[in-house]
Protein backbone atom coordinates (compact mmCIF):
# COMPACT_ATOMS: atom_id res chain seq x y z
CA UNK A 1 0.00 0.00 0.00
CA UNK A 2 1.68 3.19 -1.13
CA UNK A 3 1.26 6.50 0.65
CA UNK A 4 -0.59 7.94 -2.33
CA UNK A 5 -3.31 5.32 -2.29
CA UNK A 6 -3.63 5.67 1.50
CA UNK A 7 -4.21 9.41 1.18
CA UNK A 8 -6.65 8.74 -1.63
CA UNK A 9 -8.66 6.34 0.49
CA UNK A 10 -8.66 8.73 3.43
CA UNK A 11 -9.89 11.54 1.18
CA UNK A 12 -12.63 9.34 -0.24
CA UNK A 13 -13.84 8.51 3.27
CA UNK A 14 -13.71 12.19 4.31
CA UNK A 15 -15.52 13.29 1.14
CA UNK A 16 -18.46 11.12 2.18
CA UNK A 17 -18.47 11.89 5.92
CA UNK A 18 -18.02 15.68 5.69
CA UNK A 19 -20.97 16.53 3.42
CA UNK A 20 -23.01 13.86 5.20
CA UNK A 21 -22.66 15.57 8.60
CA UNK A 22 -23.30 18.92 6.90
CA UNK A 23 -26.47 17.65 5.27
CA UNK A 24 -27.72 16.25 8.58
CA UNK A 25 -27.12 19.68 10.15
CA UNK A 26 -29.06 21.40 7.38
CA UNK A 27 -31.95 18.92 7.58
CA UNK A 28 -32.50 20.06 11.16
CA UNK A 29 -32.56 23.71 10.05
CA UNK A 30 -34.80 22.88 7.10
CA UNK A 31 -37.19 21.13 9.44
CA UNK A 32 -37.42 24.10 11.79
CA UNK A 33 -37.74 26.58 8.93
CA UNK A 34 -40.40 24.61 7.03
CA UNK A 35 -42.38 23.81 10.18
CA UNK A 36 -42.15 27.50 11.01
CA UNK A 37 -43.56 28.52 7.64
CA UNK A 38 -46.34 25.96 7.86
CA UNK A 39 -47.38 27.26 11.28
CA UNK A 40 -47.01 30.92 10.26
CA UNK A 41 -43.90 31.55 12.32
CA UNK A 42 -40.50 32.73 11.12
CA UNK A 43 -38.40 29.95 12.59
CA UNK A 44 -34.77 30.45 13.61
CA UNK A 45 -33.42 33.61 11.91
CA UNK A 46 -30.88 35.14 14.28
CA UNK A 47 -27.71 33.05 13.92
CA UNK A 48 -26.00 33.82 10.64
CA UNK A 49 -27.82 35.10 7.59
CA UNK A 50 -31.45 33.82 7.53
CA UNK A 51 -30.65 31.48 10.45
CA UNK A 52 -28.37 29.32 8.36
CA UNK A 53 -25.82 28.73 11.12
CA UNK A 54 -28.37 27.71 13.76
CA UNK A 55 -27.42 24.01 13.73
CA UNK A 56 -23.73 24.79 14.28
CA UNK A 57 -24.59 27.15 17.11
CA UNK A 58 -26.66 24.38 18.74
CA UNK A 59 -23.79 21.92 18.36
CA UNK A 60 -21.33 24.40 19.90
CA UNK A 61 -23.68 25.02 22.80
CA UNK A 62 -23.97 21.29 23.47
CA UNK A 63 -20.18 20.96 23.20
CA UNK A 64 -19.70 23.04 26.35
CA UNK A 65 -22.50 21.35 28.30
CA UNK A 66 -21.74 19.05 31.19
CA UNK A 67 -21.83 15.32 30.52
CA UNK A 68 -23.98 13.95 33.35
CA UNK A 69 -23.60 10.26 34.18
CA UNK A 70 -26.46 9.46 36.59
CA UNK A 71 -25.30 7.46 39.60
CA UNK A 72 -27.31 4.25 39.12
CA UNK A 73 -26.73 3.79 35.40
CA UNK A 74 -24.58 1.14 33.81
CA UNK A 75 -21.80 3.60 32.95
CA UNK A 76 -20.08 1.75 30.10
CA UNK A 77 -23.26 0.77 28.26
CA UNK A 78 -24.69 4.23 28.89
CA UNK A 79 -21.89 5.88 26.93
CA UNK A 80 -21.57 3.06 24.41
CA UNK A 81 -25.23 3.03 23.32
CA UNK A 82 -25.34 6.40 21.50
CA UNK A 83 -21.98 5.62 19.90
CA UNK A 84 -23.34 2.34 18.50
CA UNK A 85 -26.34 4.22 17.11
CA UNK A 86 -24.24 6.89 15.42
CA UNK A 87 -21.53 4.56 14.07
CA UNK A 88 -24.15 2.28 12.50
CA UNK A 89 -26.00 5.30 11.16
CA UNK A 90 -22.86 6.56 9.42
CA UNK A 91 -21.53 3.21 8.20
CA UNK A 92 -24.44 2.51 5.84
CA UNK A 93 -23.41 5.47 3.68
CA UNK A 94 -20.48 3.53 2.26
CA UNK A 95 -22.93 1.54 0.13
CA UNK A 96 -24.83 4.39 -1.51
CA UNK A 97 -23.90 5.02 -5.17
CA UNK A 98 -23.76 8.76 -5.94
CA UNK A 99 -23.18 8.11 -9.60
CA UNK A 100 -22.16 5.23 -11.79
CA UNK A 101 -19.13 3.76 -9.99
CA UNK A 102 -19.13 6.56 -7.39
CA UNK A 103 -19.51 4.31 -4.37
CA UNK A 104 -17.06 3.47 -1.58
CA UNK A 105 -17.93 -0.22 -1.29
CA UNK A 106 -19.60 -1.70 -4.36
CA UNK A 107 -20.72 -4.93 -2.66
CA UNK A 108 -22.75 -7.42 -4.64
CA UNK A 109 -24.78 -7.92 -1.42
CA UNK A 110 -25.35 -4.18 -0.90
CA UNK A 111 -28.99 -4.23 0.19
CA UNK A 112 -28.41 -7.13 2.59
CA UNK A 113 -25.53 -5.24 4.18
CA UNK A 114 -27.75 -2.20 4.62
CA UNK A 115 -30.44 -4.32 6.29
CA UNK A 116 -27.83 -5.90 8.58
CA UNK A 117 -26.22 -2.62 9.67
CA UNK A 118 -29.56 -0.87 10.23
CA UNK A 119 -30.72 -3.81 12.39
CA UNK A 120 -27.64 -3.44 14.60
CA UNK A 121 -28.63 0.21 15.14
CA UNK A 122 -31.62 -1.05 17.15
CA UNK A 123 -29.16 -2.31 19.79
CA UNK A 124 -28.20 1.28 20.53
CA UNK A 125 -31.79 2.06 21.51
CA UNK A 126 -32.25 -1.14 23.57
CA UNK A 127 -28.96 -0.61 25.42
CA UNK A 128 -29.75 3.07 26.06
CA UNK A 129 -33.10 2.17 27.62
CA UNK A 130 -31.61 -0.60 29.73
CA UNK A 131 -28.48 1.23 30.87
CA UNK A 132 -30.29 4.44 31.87
CA UNK A 133 -32.15 2.62 34.68
CA UNK A 134 -35.02 5.05 34.36
CA UNK A 135 -38.69 4.20 33.92
CA UNK A 136 -39.24 6.60 31.03
CA UNK A 137 -36.15 5.37 29.22
CA UNK A 138 -37.13 1.75 29.78
CA UNK A 139 -40.68 2.14 28.45
CA UNK A 140 -39.45 4.37 25.63
CA UNK A 141 -36.86 1.86 24.50
CA UNK A 142 -39.39 -1.01 24.69
CA UNK A 143 -41.77 0.93 22.50
CA UNK A 144 -39.05 1.97 20.08
CA UNK A 145 -37.76 -1.58 19.74
CA UNK A 146 -41.19 -3.10 19.19
CA UNK A 147 -41.93 -0.44 16.58
CA UNK A 148 -38.57 -0.83 14.84
CA UNK A 149 -38.71 -4.60 14.54
CA UNK A 150 -42.36 -4.62 13.45
CA UNK A 151 -41.76 -2.20 10.64
CA UNK A 152 -38.49 -3.94 9.77
CA UNK A 153 -40.56 -6.90 8.55
CA UNK A 154 -42.55 -4.77 6.10
CA UNK A 155 -39.39 -2.84 5.19
CA UNK A 156 -37.54 -6.08 4.34
CA UNK A 157 -40.46 -7.54 2.38
CA UNK A 158 -40.82 -4.38 0.27
CA UNK A 159 -37.11 -4.40 -0.56
CA UNK A 160 -37.57 -8.06 -1.50
CA UNK A 161 -40.35 -7.12 -3.94
CA UNK A 162 -38.01 -4.70 -5.70
CA UNK A 163 -35.31 -7.39 -5.79
CA UNK A 164 -37.77 -9.70 -7.56
CA UNK A 165 -37.74 -7.24 -10.48
CA UNK A 166 -34.00 -6.59 -10.45
CA UNK A 167 -32.51 -10.00 -9.70
CA UNK A 168 -29.51 -8.54 -7.89
CA UNK A 169 -28.68 -7.11 -4.45
CA UNK A 170 -26.22 -4.59 -5.84
CA UNK A 171 -27.46 -1.01 -5.49
CA UNK A 172 -25.87 0.17 -8.75
CA UNK A 173 -27.61 -2.66 -10.61
CA UNK A 174 -30.91 -1.72 -8.97
CA UNK A 175 -30.54 1.85 -10.22
CA UNK A 176 -29.34 0.88 -13.71
CA UNK A 177 -32.33 -1.46 -14.14
CA UNK A 178 -34.67 1.54 -13.73
CA UNK A 179 -33.46 3.17 -16.96
CA UNK A 180 -36.67 2.20 -18.76
CA UNK A 181 -39.06 3.15 -15.97
CA UNK A 182 -38.78 4.12 -12.31
CA UNK A 183 -40.15 1.44 -10.00
CA UNK A 184 -42.60 3.89 -8.45
CA UNK A 185 -44.80 3.44 -11.53
CA UNK A 186 -45.32 -0.36 -11.54
CA UNK A 187 -45.03 -0.59 -7.73
CA UNK A 188 -46.97 2.53 -6.71
CA UNK A 189 -48.94 1.06 -3.74
CA UNK A 190 -45.73 -0.59 -2.54
CA UNK A 191 -43.87 2.72 -2.74
CA UNK A 192 -46.54 4.40 -0.61
CA UNK A 193 -46.26 1.64 1.98
CA UNK A 194 -42.47 2.00 1.90
CA UNK A 195 -42.90 5.68 2.73
CA UNK A 196 -45.04 4.76 5.76
CA UNK A 197 -42.56 2.08 6.80
CA UNK A 198 -39.58 4.44 6.68
CA UNK A 199 -41.53 7.06 8.65
CA UNK A 200 -41.98 4.45 11.37
CA UNK A 201 -38.43 3.09 11.04
CA UNK A 202 -36.97 6.51 11.75
CA UNK A 203 -39.39 7.15 14.66
CA UNK A 204 -40.83 10.22 12.97
CA UNK A 205 -44.18 11.87 13.50
CA UNK A 206 -46.92 10.57 13.24
CA UNK A 207 -45.13 7.45 14.55
CA UNK A 208 -42.93 9.15 17.17
CA UNK A 209 -44.35 7.10 20.03
CA UNK A 210 -40.95 6.34 21.65
CA UNK A 211 -40.58 9.99 22.62
CA UNK A 212 -44.09 11.37 22.60
CA UNK A 213 -43.30 14.46 24.64
CA UNK A 214 -46.18 14.56 27.06
CA UNK A 215 -46.05 10.89 28.06
CA UNK A 216 -42.44 9.79 28.28
CA UNK A 217 -40.35 12.98 28.69
CA UNK A 218 -37.91 12.09 25.89
CA UNK A 219 -38.22 8.31 25.67
CA UNK A 220 -34.94 6.42 25.69
CA UNK A 221 -33.02 9.73 25.54
CA UNK A 222 -34.34 11.02 28.88
CA UNK A 223 -31.08 10.65 30.85
CA UNK A 224 -28.77 11.81 28.08
CA UNK A 225 -27.08 15.18 27.95
CA UNK A 226 -24.30 16.92 26.04
CA UNK A 227 -22.63 14.94 23.26
CA UNK A 228 -24.14 11.48 23.85
CA UNK A 229 -27.46 13.25 23.21
CA UNK A 230 -26.00 14.84 20.07
CA UNK A 231 -25.00 11.35 18.91
CA UNK A 232 -28.59 10.11 19.22
CA UNK A 233 -29.81 13.26 17.50
CA UNK A 234 -27.37 12.86 14.62
CA UNK A 235 -28.18 9.15 14.33
CA UNK A 236 -31.90 9.91 14.15
CA UNK A 237 -31.59 12.59 11.48
CA UNK A 238 -28.93 10.57 9.69
CA UNK A 239 -31.41 7.69 9.53
CA UNK A 240 -34.02 10.03 8.06
CA UNK A 241 -31.64 11.23 5.35
CA UNK A 242 -30.44 7.70 4.68
CA UNK A 243 -33.91 6.20 4.39
CA UNK A 244 -34.95 9.01 2.02
CA UNK A 245 -31.91 8.26 -0.09
CA UNK A 246 -32.68 4.55 -0.04
CA UNK A 247 -36.27 5.09 -1.13
CA UNK A 248 -35.17 7.40 -3.93
CA UNK A 249 -32.76 4.66 -5.04
CA UNK A 250 -35.36 1.90 -4.86
CA UNK A 251 -38.31 3.76 -6.35
CA UNK A 252 -37.22 7.03 -7.97
CA UNK A 253 -34.28 5.81 -10.04
CA UNK A 254 -31.48 7.02 -7.75
CA UNK A 255 -28.96 9.06 -9.71
CA UNK A 256 -30.67 8.59 -13.08
CA UNK A 257 -31.94 11.67 -14.90
CA UNK A 258 -34.96 10.78 -17.05
CA UNK A 259 -34.27 10.95 -20.78
CA UNK A 260 -30.62 12.00 -20.50
CA UNK A 261 -27.54 9.82 -20.37
CA UNK A 262 -25.79 11.69 -17.57
CA UNK A 263 -22.61 11.37 -15.60
CA UNK A 264 -20.51 13.32 -13.12
CA UNK A 265 -22.15 16.21 -11.32
CA UNK A 266 -25.61 15.67 -12.83
CA UNK A 267 -25.97 12.22 -11.25
CA UNK A 268 -25.16 13.53 -7.78
CA UNK A 269 -27.53 16.49 -8.19
CA UNK A 270 -30.27 14.17 -9.40
CA UNK A 271 -29.94 11.92 -6.35
CA UNK A 272 -29.82 15.01 -4.15
CA UNK A 273 -33.02 16.50 -5.59
CA UNK A 274 -34.96 13.26 -5.22
CA UNK A 275 -33.73 12.80 -1.66
CA UNK A 276 -34.57 16.40 -0.76
CA UNK A 277 -38.07 15.93 -2.10
CA UNK A 278 -38.65 12.90 0.16
CA UNK A 279 -37.09 14.77 3.09
CA UNK A 280 -39.54 17.59 2.47
CA UNK A 281 -42.37 15.00 2.54
CA UNK A 282 -41.09 13.82 5.94
CA UNK A 283 -41.29 17.35 7.36
CA UNK A 284 -44.61 18.07 5.66
CA UNK A 285 -46.13 14.92 7.17
CA UNK A 286 -44.81 15.86 10.60
CA UNK A 287 -46.44 19.27 10.34
CA UNK A 288 -49.77 17.87 9.12
CA UNK A 289 -50.71 14.70 11.00
CA UNK A 290 -51.51 14.00 14.65
CA UNK A 291 -49.73 11.19 16.46
CA UNK A 292 -51.16 7.66 16.44
CA UNK A 293 -52.07 5.74 19.59
CA UNK A 294 -49.71 2.85 20.36
CA UNK A 295 -52.21 0.04 19.71
CA UNK A 296 -53.23 1.76 16.44
CA UNK A 297 -49.58 1.83 15.43
CA UNK A 298 -49.14 -1.88 16.12
CA UNK A 299 -52.39 -3.01 14.54
CA UNK A 300 -51.77 -0.86 11.46
CA UNK A 301 -48.56 -2.75 10.82
CA UNK A 302 -49.48 -6.33 11.80
CA UNK A 303 -53.06 -6.53 10.60
CA UNK A 304 -53.20 -3.96 7.79
CA UNK A 305 -49.87 -3.45 6.06
CA UNK A 306 -48.37 -6.91 6.51
CA UNK A 307 -51.27 -8.84 4.85
CA UNK A 308 -51.14 -6.47 1.85
CA UNK A 309 -47.38 -6.83 1.51
CA UNK A 310 -47.61 -10.63 1.80
CA UNK A 311 -50.30 -10.62 -0.91
CA UNK A 312 -47.98 -8.57 -3.13
CA UNK A 313 -45.08 -10.91 -2.39
CA UNK A 314 -47.17 -13.74 -3.89
CA UNK A 315 -48.44 -11.65 -6.81
CA UNK A 316 -45.13 -10.16 -7.95
CA UNK A 317 -43.11 -13.40 -8.38
CA UNK A 318 -46.06 -14.71 -10.40
CA UNK A 319 -45.98 -11.63 -12.66
CA UNK A 320 -42.20 -11.84 -13.01
CA UNK A 321 -42.43 -15.53 -13.91
CA UNK A 322 -45.42 -15.12 -16.22
CA UNK A 323 -43.86 -12.37 -18.31
CA UNK A 324 -40.28 -13.75 -18.11
CA UNK A 325 -38.96 -10.29 -17.26
CA UNK A 326 -35.27 -11.22 -17.44
Amino acid sequence: MTINSTINSLLEALIVIGPLLGSIAYVTIAERKIMGSMQRRIGPNKVGYYGLLQAFADALKLLVKELVLPSNTDKILFVLAPMISLVCGLLVWTLIPYGKGLVIADFSLGIVTILAISSVAAYGIILAGWASNNKYSFIGSLRATAQLISYEVVFGLIILLVIFFVGSFNLTTIIESQKAIWYIVPLFPIALMFLIAILAESNRAPFDLPESESELTAGFMTEYSAFPFVFFFLAEYGAIVFLSTLSSILFLGGYLVPGIESNGLMTGLSLGFKTSFILFLFIWIRASFPRLRYDQLMSSIWSKMLPIVIAFSILIPCIVKAFEIY
Binding site: M1, A13, V16, I17, V87, L90, I104
Partner: peptide, 12 residues
Protein backbone atom coordinates in the same frame (compact mmCIF):
# COMPACT_ATOMS: atom_id res chain seq x y z
CA UNK B 1 -12.39 -2.13 -0.44
CA UNK B 2 -9.50 -0.10 0.89
CA UNK B 3 -11.61 3.03 1.24
CA UNK B 4 -14.26 0.96 2.95
CA UNK B 5 -11.73 -0.15 5.55
CA UNK B 6 -10.68 3.46 6.07
CA UNK B 7 -14.28 4.56 6.47
CA UNK B 8 -14.87 1.71 8.90
CA UNK B 9 -12.00 2.90 11.09
CA UNK B 10 -12.58 6.63 10.61
CA UNK B 11 -16.20 6.69 11.80
CA UNK B 12 -15.59 5.35 15.34
Amino acid sequence: MNSFLFYFILVP
